[in-house]
Amino acid sequence: MGSDPANSAGGWAIDWSPVWLTLHLSALTAVLLLALAVPLAWWLATTRARIRPLIEAVTALPLVLPPTVLGFYLLILFSPDTGLGAAWVRLTGETLTFSFTGLVLASMVYSLPFAVQPLQTAFEAVPRPPLEAAATLGAGPFDRFRTIVLPQSRRGLLTALVLSFAHTVGEFGVVLMVGGNIPGQTRVISIEVYSAVETLDYERAHVLSSGLLVFSFLVLSAVYVLNRRGRRDVF
């Protein structure tokens, strides 16, 4: 739907496509990232491998690096002249740079720590005795993970999902580097606000900015309310 040109005619002659594109990108990123982060966080929470601190450091890098640096390296990596970018072109006929797919991949890298860290904390907090009890009752590793670890980590899962969604909504530097500013493809709200301000279209900047502000506030409030309720269910 992000590339649907029908969205470009809005109520006050406002172009809604950056809004839909942002939501689409953030939701897709959050879901894909969760699928990737759950096994990674479980491995980090349980492994005794010596390389664990190194993997943890790599996972946390996007927290520290300026988005432009991250975006620059991703741009190089995605470029059709290099391994990954070229393979993608051969496979799909499209380039990763300046495309929605590339933006999803870049967002996943950018928001990785926001998914992995709450999950790892939640997994590490699952007490050992119930897991050992489950094992003596005949539950194998995957069974234990599904029936004990995941339900007892509900709040961590929700936090990871929401934080990676919210963080992707607020993304700017990486999008600019990797995705550019293509309407319906890569022009998300943050980029649109930036170009509105650049062109002195303050009204448009106001509408989008306040909309994003209210939306973010509502989403986060809903999460904290749900989280609170979830906590009471357990006991």
């Binding site: 005795p129 119930p130 050992e132 009890a133 489950a134 003596t136 009752l137 005949g138 004990i148 339900p151 007892q152 357990v234 006991f235």
Partner: peptide
């Protein structure tokens, strides 16, 4: 298939 009854019961709280 060895049953184990733990000191602290180790029930599944959820």
């Amino acid at each position: 298939r060895v049953g184990y009854v733990f000191q602290e019961a180790a029930l599944f709280d959820h």
